[in-house]
């Protein structure tokens, strides 16, 4: 067991991947000389050189498409799009090429590409730098979408993504980079959700930056006699229905906590799946705690008010019990 930060875990994963396979390289804005916008790739340029730690111009579509081409050409590229906000400039390449080529070519070509990007709000960066669009990406067939919330996942998901023959998007929540913890030696999969806290009264379903708020809310609920199970989705596409539905069938209540906006959200999708499959097991309507439907404002008090927070999660969980608790 080693104590390290989430940032260090991602960096170590990059180092190990670069050492393990010479086809792997990292490409993106400020990944080299600057050391990464979030300092994830600090020191890598010196260790691996400018060919494999490749700084790019501010051409998100260009270098993301180049990553797709390089993957088609036999490499294992890791494209870093600085933040999800800028990934909109690469959306054509991700959706129209990375996600379609295997199917559209009749299985002749595949795109073993990993795209990493930071996501989420909470740093007072205002409306254009605070998006949580991973739920949008989870809409797209042909790609996998990961949201590591723990140190083990921050480390382990990168290697698993590189081993995957298809495009994998990894969303790293900006509020997690400084989070410290220990890393175990266990390998991780990129297929299943994880139960982070076992409980019997209600299932709280979440991912990424909201996991830690949800676990905190679960402790508050415990102090009030409600034993919450907390599911960390980990993989936003494809969703691990078995874990989600199994838990809800057992607890008979569910609240979904999602940093995306409520309308058309991943939370809406999960809620629908619960209705479709375990409706008769439910004792209460499924609840949701999402980001308020506003462009994220700059002042801290307004930003806090817009995002899912512990009191809101606790309140939503209690609401599923009506007036009984």
């Amino acid at each position: 067991m080693t104590e390290l930060s989430y940032r260090d875990a991602v960096r170590q994963a990059l180092i190990d991947a670069l050492n393990a396979d010479e086809r792997v390289f990292l490409m993106g804005e400020d990944v080299g000389s600057y050391g990464g916008c979030y300092a994830v790739s600090k020191g890598l340029l010196e260790e691996f050189g400018p060919e494999r730690i490749r700084d790019t111009p501010l051409s998100e579509s260009g270098f993301t498409g180049a990553g797709i081409g390089a993957a088609l050409g036999g490499l294992r590229p890791i494209v870093e799009i600085m933040t999800v906000n800028f990934s909109l400039l690469a959306l054509d390449q991700i959706m129209n090429n990375a996600a379609t080529i295997r199917h559209m070519s009749g299985g002749q070509f595949n795109v073993p590409l990993v795209i990493r990007m930071a996501t989420g709000a909470g740093r007072q960066l205002a409306a254009q730098h605070s998006h949580s669009l991973e739920g949008w990406y989870a809409h797209i067939p042909g790609i996998k979408v990961l949201a590591p919330a723990t140190i083990d996942d921050a480390y382990g998901m990168l290697g698993a993504a590189l081993a995957d023959p298809d495009p994998v998007l990894i969303f790293e929540n900006v509020m997690l980079y400084n989070r410290a913890g220990t890393r175990s030696d266990t390998t991780v999969d990129i297929t299943s959700a994880a139960v982070r806290r076992a409980g019997k009264d209600i299932t709280l379903i979440t991912y990424g930056g909201s996991l830690w708020k949800t676990l905190e809310a679960a402790e508050v609920l415990a102090s009030e006699g409600i034993d919450a199970e907390v599911i960390d989705l980990r993989v936003l596409r494809p969703l691990d229905d078995a874990t989600i539905l199994g838990s809800v069938a057992n607890t008979r209540r569910a609240v979904i906590i999602d940093e995306g906006w409520r309308s058309g959200s991943l939370a809406a999708e999960i809620s629908a799946r619960i209705m479709e499959s375990v409706f008769w097991e439910l004792d209460a309507p499924v609840g949701r705690v999402c980001t308020a439907e506003v462009p994220i404002p700059y002042p801290k008090h307004l930003e806090d008010a817009a995002l899912p927070q512990v009191p809101g999660i606790v309140a939503a969980a209690k609401a599923t019990f009506g007036t009984t608790k």
């Binding site: 579509s61 498409g65 081409g69 390089a70 088609l72 050409g73 490499l75 390449q93 090429n97």
Partner: peptide, 25 residues
């Protein structure tokens, strides 16, 4: 033959990437 790309301009970055792979390999 890598398509067959029906978004105008969409094939150019892919060509860049294919060439990048050739150069690096």
């Amino acid at each position: 033959f890598y398509g067959g790309n029906a978004i105008v301009g969409g094939g150019l970055p892919i060509a860049v990437g294919l060439a990048l792979a050739d150069k690096m390999l």
